[in-house]
Amino acid sequence: TRVETATETAWISLVTALHLVLGLSAVLGLLLLRWQFPAHYRRLRHALW
């Protein structure tokens, strides 16, 4: 049971790290898009909202 718990903890930390990385890359990508294509971003936002 001790090994299982350790594996579970490792998986949880791995998944958390993955989610953090994905979230950060998504935010960075959005910022980059907004910085590179302001007109396109505004049009996209206008279409979405």
Score class of each variant (00 low, 15 high):
residue 48 L to N: 05
residue 5 T to Y: 05
residue 5 T to N: 00
residue 32 L to R: 05
residue 49 W to C: 05
residue 27 V to Q: 02
residue 16 T to M: 11
residue 14 L to D: 02
residue 33 L to D: 03
residue 32 L to Q: 05
residue 40 H to V: 08
residue 2 R to C: 10
residue 12 I to K: 14
residue 10 A to H: 07
residue 6 A to Q: 11
residue 40 H to F: 13
residue 9 T to F: 10
residue 18 L to A: 02
residue 40 H to W: 08
residue 36 Q to K: 14
residue 32 L to V: 14
residue 34 R to C: 07
residue 26 A to T: 13
residue 30 L to W: 08
residue 46 H to P: 08
residue 47 A to I: 08
residue 42 R to P: 02
residue 3 V to P: 00
residue 35 W to P: 12
residue 25 S to N: 08
residue 22 L to I: 13
residue 48 L to Q: 06
residue 2 R to F: 13
residue 7 T to W: 11
residue 33 L to P: 01
residue 12 I to L: 11
residue 18 L to R: 01
residue 43 R to G: 07
residue 15 V to G: 03
residue 35 W to N: 13
residue 22 L to M: 12
residue 38 P to C: 04
residue 32 L to H: 08
residue 35 W to L: 13
residue 15 V to W: 00
residue 48 L to S: 06
residue 38 P to S: 12
residue 37 F to P: 02
residue 42 R to N: 11
residue 12 I to E: 01
residue 23 G to S: 10
residue 20 L to P: 02
residue 10 A to E: 12
residue 10 A to G: 11
residue 35 W to K: 11
residue 1 T to Y: 12
residue 48 L to F: 06
residue 25 S to L: 08
residue 37 F to N: 02
residue 5 T to M: 07
residue 1 T to N: 08
residue 3 V to S: 03
residue 8 E to H: 05
residue 28 L to M: 12
residue 9 T to R: 12
residue 2 R to N: 09
residue 38 P to L: 09
residue 8 E to D: 09
residue 47 A to C: 09
residue 1 T to Q: 14
residue 24 L to E: 01
residue 7 T to K: 14
residue 38 P to W: 06
residue 10 A to P: 06
residue 2 R to E: 12
residue 13 S to W: 14
residue 46 H to S: 09
residue 43 R to S: 10
residue 19 H to Y: 04
residue 30 L to S: 10
residue 23 G to M: 15
residue 14 L to E: 00
residue 21 V to S: 09
residue 16 T to Q: 03
residue 19 H to V: 01
residue 35 W to M: 15
residue 34 R to L: 04
residue 15 V to F: 01
residue 7 T to M: 11
residue 39 A to L: 15
residue 28 L to Y: 07
residue 35 W to G: 15
residue 6 A to K: 11
residue 8 E to Q: 05
residue 14 L to P: 06
residue 36 Q to Y: 15
residue 26 A to M: 13
residue 18 L to G: 00
residue 33 L to F: 08
residue 5 T to D: 01
residue 46 H to T: 10
residue 40 H to G: 14
residue 9 T to W: 10
residue 47 A to N: 08
residue 27 V to C: 10
residue 38 P to I: 09
residue 34 R to P: 05
residue 3 V to Y: 01
residue 10 A to S: 12
residue 44 L to M: 09
residue 26 A to V: 13
residue 21 V to R: 02
residue 49 W to M: 04
residue 27 V to W: 10
residue 40 H to K: 12
residue 40 H to P: 14
residue 2 R to D: 11
residue 12 I to N: 06
residue 8 E to M: 00
residue 48 L to H: 00
residue 1 T to G: 07
residue 14 L to A: 05
residue 19 H to F: 00
residue 27 V to H: 00
residue 37 F to E: 02
residue 42 R to W: 10
residue 10 A to V: 08
residue 5 T to C: 01
residue 38 P to H: 12
residue 31 L to T: 14
residue 22 L to G: 08
residue 32 L to N: 05
residue 40 H to C: 12
residue 16 T to A: 12
residue 13 S to P: 05
residue 41 Y to H: 08
residue 3 V to F: 08
residue 26 A to H: 01
residue 7 T to L: 11
residue 13 S to I: 13
residue 11 W to P: 03
residue 24 L to Y: 04
residue 10 A to M: 07
residue 3 V to G: 00
residue 41 Y to Q: 06
residue 2 R to K: 11
residue 22 L to W: 03
residue 15 V to S: 05
residue 38 P to N: 13
residue 5 T to H: 00
residue 44 L to H: 05
residue 4 E to M: 15
residue 45 R to V: 07
residue 24 L to I: 11
